[in-house]
Design a protein around this nucleic acid. Structure first.
Lengths: 103, 103
DNA sequence: CTTAAATTTGTCAAAATTTGACAAGCCAAA
DNA sequence: TTTGGCTTGTCAAATTTTGACAAATTTAAG
């Protein structure tokens, strides 16, 4: 499983000298769960991304991007055509966001 | 739900003048299911992508790319940060495929 | 070492999601 | 109208995800 997000929040936790125990209790999860999120064994809920950002005084968008990227990565992991698929998806997104201007 | 894939296989079916009934039986699914796949209400199994390609004499890779792209799209659909996340994921993929050379 | 705290690993049932199958509906063409 | 092709809706079964807990492992300190 991809793990940019987990790596980043682990780094942030260490920079803040916090223990998993402390962070976990803030997010109302147990330490095994936090451990798994940091190592990418489980994925955080979207809601929790914001909680991490707040707790660590980090940029919400930065974390959200990492979190999304991990999920994208998971979809195409191991596929030879991953890059082509990504480009195709990117085009689609561009098209959709244009027409979303007038919604 | 994204639907590049469904649109394409519908187009192919029409070009070949086949009925859903006929195609469905080849893939051993029922017509409602095929209808849903064509309209993107359900997603085809990866295995079925190949079956479509064969049946329609289409390029396997082309279909697989569309199929993957749809799933990528679903992950970031509606996200403001979609493009940034896509770019991040793309970088990750590049990195991984490099180190996969010698595996 | 020996202990104690921190983290990781493993397991499992409950919850949530996805799937396949079927019945019924719609609609255009004859 | 009836018929054939496609779509819509529903539901239980299968699969996947989740959260919680116990146990094992690692780390750091005395």
């Amino acid at each position: 499983m991809a793990n940019q997000f987990g790596g980043r929040i682990k780094q942030l936790r260490e920079q803040h000298n916090l223990l998993q125990r402390q962070v976990a209790s803030q997010l109302e999860i147990d330490t095994p769960m936090l451990s798994k999120i940091e190592r990418g064994e489980r994925k955080a809920k979207k809601e929790q991304v914001g909680q991490f950002a707040k707790l660590y005084n980090a940029d919400n968008n930065e974390l959200l991007i990492l979190w999304l990227a991990d999920q994208l990565f998971d979809v195409v992991e191991g596929e030879d055509l991953a890059l082509k698929a990504i480009h195709m998806a990117e085009e689609e997104i561009r098209i959709h966001s244009k027409s979303a201007k007038r919604k």
